[in-house]
Nucleic acid binder design. Sequence first.
DNA 1: TCCGGCAATACTGTATACAGTTGTCGCGTT
DNA 2: AACGCGACAACTGTATACAGTATTGCCGGA
Lengths: 236, 236
Amino acid sequence: MQGPPIPFTPELRNRRTTSDHIADALRAAINSGQLADGAELNQVEIAGHFGVSRVPVREAMRQLQAEGLIDASAHRRAVVRGIGIDTLTEAYELRALLEGRLAAAAVPNLDRARLDRLAALNRELRESRDHTRYLELNSEFHNTLYEVADRPLAFEFVESLRQRSERYVQMWSRGRGLNRGRQVAREHAAIVRLAKQGDAAGAQRAVEEHIQHTLDAVLALHEDQLPSNGADGDDA
Amino acid sequence: MQGPPIPFTPELRNRRTTSDHIADALRAAINSGQLADGAELNQVEIAGHFGVSRVPVREAMRQLQAEGLIDASAHRRAVVRGIGIDTLTEAYELRALLEGRLAAAAVPNLDRARLDRLAALNRELRESRDHTRYLELNSEFHNTLYEVADRPLAFEFVESLRQRSERYVQMWSRGRGLNRGRQVAREHAAIVRLAKQGDAAGAQRAVEEHIQHTLDAVLALHEDQLPSNGADGDDA
DNA sequence: TCCGGCAATACTGTATACAGTTGTCGCGTT
DNA sequence: AACGCGACAACTGTATACAGTATTGCCGGA
């Protein structure tokens, strides 16, 4: 309460459990496409694959279910929940809405250090040729901006939306190379410029358009590959 | 594929598992205030209370964690995650935003039967004196409207936001009686009227204001009872 | 050949048992 | 008396064992 805050790193407390690792691994497998849409998740198989018992696998799967990545009903195998073009479109609409507001809320709270960091991230992103690294940098750029918006719920929802659409972006980024990388960097730079000027409304609009463009790019690749709606009740 | 759709109820498939029941029970306990903000959830105690083993309890807790109702870190007791006034306010801001759009999207898809149903629900709500039933009817009214918006993600997020703020509304509804009940019914009626006229923009605005008013009412009760921020990192 | 039913199988759901970690209490030292 | 430290207790995390359910495949009859 009064002394020096804390002597040694308290973050050591956040040790991760097996269930968390499994959840991460499954998420990564889904996002990378190793587990395609509609793929069935066999608990014993997964447990065997990771060399653990089914208990942490089940806990991980329940988390993924709550996150909306898989569908599961009682006594039946869970399946990877794919989303169709219309749901993907909705996801980006919501992202534009929410991220725009996050950007607007963040602008007044941006200090010089953070602005520099944003510029640095964008510089590295522009040069990056590895698509995994590229996606990381892109995420970090946006998160760095949104962090200071002080809107935990909106931030959380945006992460959830990104999570659910990431695999389609990965397909895009892998298949199409980084043609759009330059364009993305330009749009990021414009956002940073507006933010530096304190133009919250302008930054909001720029973010909204940026996300709209991303959707266009993803749709351009997918529109003849995805069904008009991915996984709605109808089976087989 | 071609015969009569399905002979006997396929919803029998949705049999619920113990974990689901525990999750529901815990949610209800949190919403009713039996488990207050910051309360610690002891797995063995909960398991004993329900007469089950810890396994389904753990799964339920992981789901609640993913839903944002509790905080849990490894090897430590999970605690009920309370939200402060500012997060509560954000929740209602987001609800206004999302539910407004849902209403606007729903208007073109409303048929007469559904409009009648909305009116009937609102009629019953106006007369209802039991606050549990009142909240049920309120939820059902909004869901009935939003269902036809065909925006699964937005719908899901709204449910999540309602879930997280419900306990504060319960406190309000319990403590303050139904003084506002009439006003709510009036606002609902206005929404139905605008929807019937096909005025999507008007319905959107009416829903936004309706939610704003609800926030005002909840805040009026809570503003001297809740900390300015509920559960952010700082402990003890 | 096609269909219905029945048995075996594979898988999920839950309980119990074990391992590892955290918090606490009491003792000894300073 | 305050502090550090070590053993104990309580609790969480994981594995294994058991119970129940869905699915598959086979067989007999039409």
